[in-house]
Amino acid sequence: MLKLFRRNKSAQLFGLISPGALWILLFFNLPLLIVLFISFVERGRAGGIKLPPVYTLENYSQLFNACSSQFAGPECDPFLYIGIFGHSVRIALVVTFWCILLGYPLSYFISRQRPVWRDALMILVIIPFWTNFLVRTYALKQVLATEGLLNSLFMGLHLVNQPLNLLFNEFAVNVGLLYGYLPFAVLPMYASIEKFDHSLMEAAADLGAPPWRAFLRVMLPMTLPGVIAALVLVFVPVVGAFITPDIMGGGKIEMIGTLINRQFGVSRNWPFGSAMSFILMLMVLIGVIAYFRSSSEETRRTM
């Protein structure tokens, strides 16, 4: 057996790969298949699924017509879930937009510092990662609360007469997500911008390009892979986020993540939750494929 291992390259390779591959197969791929299976069967009365399984497409059709369920009340809105999906995508787009808009200049600024400062500033960007996400979100909640830091400040400065409603609305969810995911935008954009050769901006200026045209024609196209990576890294987790909308929205802001979370909790509708997970996954998959296609095109063009 050992001899075979020493001689055979593919056997060695198999030996190296198999632990990780087995892990992924057992704990990622197999459960995924189970979720896929559940999404096509009828729900059980107290959670779980009906046994023996009864196959159905209702979980998927319910997504497009919320009233197709047998439990639907008379005042049901058929586009309830589609609306929540649209809402989630909108929030994710807004958050991604702001992450990139704020992250790009920040990455640029950091990349232009002297090396010592650059490293220090990048550590400052990364440090929040080392604090528990929940703790950070609750802390932000305290900042935005009615009696919180911001309102106290505004009141103290007599900028407002009564506390602003900063919490438990879409604004709060956006701020919470922006706060949580900004580093994910900064890291890839910083990597791109740091590699960018700034003498190219001088070359553009030399050839008569005002700063904004030089940016649009030279710097932005050359750092686009970083921007697209930031877009994917922020959009994908945000569209499926559930902790932040739950805490910052106070249960009033429904997103795909909170909806799925509820199906496995109080609603006890595993099959519907599974179906929504799959639709979400499909959306993300399409996005990621689009990203890889555009980035490989980019490398092909610049190589």
Binding site: D197, S199, L200, E202, A203, A204, A205, D206, L207, G208, A209, P210, P211, A214, V218, P221, M222, R301, T302
Partner: peptide
């Protein structure tokens, strides 16, 4: 006067051609 408004052009040491 900023560089982009000057009637001069430069050949850079590392050429600084736009790779994209």
């Amino acid at each position: 006067v900023p560089a982009f408004q000057r009637p001069v052009n430069t050949v850079f040491q590392q050429y600084a051609l736009f790779p994209h």
